[in-house]
Nucleic acid binder design. Sequence first.
DNA 1: TACCCTAGTGAGTGTACAGTCACTCCCATG
DNA 2: CATGGGAGTGACTGTACACTCACTAGGGTA
Lengths: 171, 171
Amino acid sequence: MVAAAALAEFARGGYHGTTVADIARQSRISPAYVFKLFPRKESLFVAGLQACFDQILDALAAGADAAQNQRPDAVLYAMGGAYADLIRDRTLLMLQAHALSVADIPEIGEALRAGVARITNFAKGRSGADDDAVQRFVAYGQLCHLLVAAHIDELDDAWAAILSHGIRHPD
Amino acid sequence: MVAAAALAEFARGGYHGTTVADIARQSRISPAYVFKLFPRKESLFVAGLQACFDQILDALAAGADAAQNQRPDAVLYAMGGAYADLIRDRTLLMLQAHALSVADIPEIGEALRAGVARITNFAKGRSGADDDAVQRFVAYGQLCHLLVAAHIDELDDAWAAILSHGIRHPD
DNA sequence: TACCCTAGTGAGTGTACAGTCACTCCCATG
DNA sequence: CATGGGAGTGACTGTACACTCACTAGGGTA
């Protein structure tokens, strides 16, 4: 599926650093046919980003299921753990980082906001936590992006330990 | 100064979306001369990023000065306010977002980690706050990046209000 | 057979960009 | 005057990329 290839390739190279030909190659079709399926490069990126948020939502739901009937904070905590596991391989996380950096392309900004909205609404609705807890949930998710994208979680320095505390990293 | 131009231009277009010619134009010198001053495009980006962190550190210091002799959390809070004011114009913030997305380019990842280290160490040392408070400080800073870069802080929806609560946005 | 439709491609076009190089201009010093 | 060197550039090269277009192969249906 082309959207999956777009997800993987854009996650590696970013929007400007990935060519349509890269995605065509991974999808085993010609660049020309990619443009038959998606009118512009942006549409391709958006398709990848939507697939990314689909996977995230699935993981959050699975995490919440595992903490059924617990108190709101516990459900949120379980979701956080599921998310931390999910982004172990950096793909979904890097795509979000790239999306943020090209959020000024209208179509992409729109898709990014829609994804964040889905996550926020789901976290709030499914856990029943109060607004502050949901905000903190998202804030620490963003911290996680910084740590993993910049490989800070692999460092041993004191400052890195402060930032990474309580956040697992792939071993 | 070329580093200032690099900061401004890379903040607008990102690493791959900005040409050396753009920066040359804004610096009022020829592209050829840019390459006399900086051997590679990456070096230019790094110079801009360092200038960015210099400005941030200055702002944090000014914020901390304004809260002299107060308790650690108050100092940290004042720094947060100073930071929120500083990134009103999106430039410094967007450059960080772009840097994160190309952190896999070794020279850039290095510079980004160095900048985050400076901020973390300064926040910790100057406020005297405990590790958890410093981690939270950085996490909410990252949330701030998401909100501003994706224009979420300008939205009126309920989910956007949850995420933006307590974070001022330019009016 | 004649027709059409879906899935797909090869070969290109025009443009834009990182990086190079030989060169000029001008000023300071002996 | 000569000469050396810092500041700066015009013109170029090779490559890479988004996007287009005319085309084919093959299967289903009348």
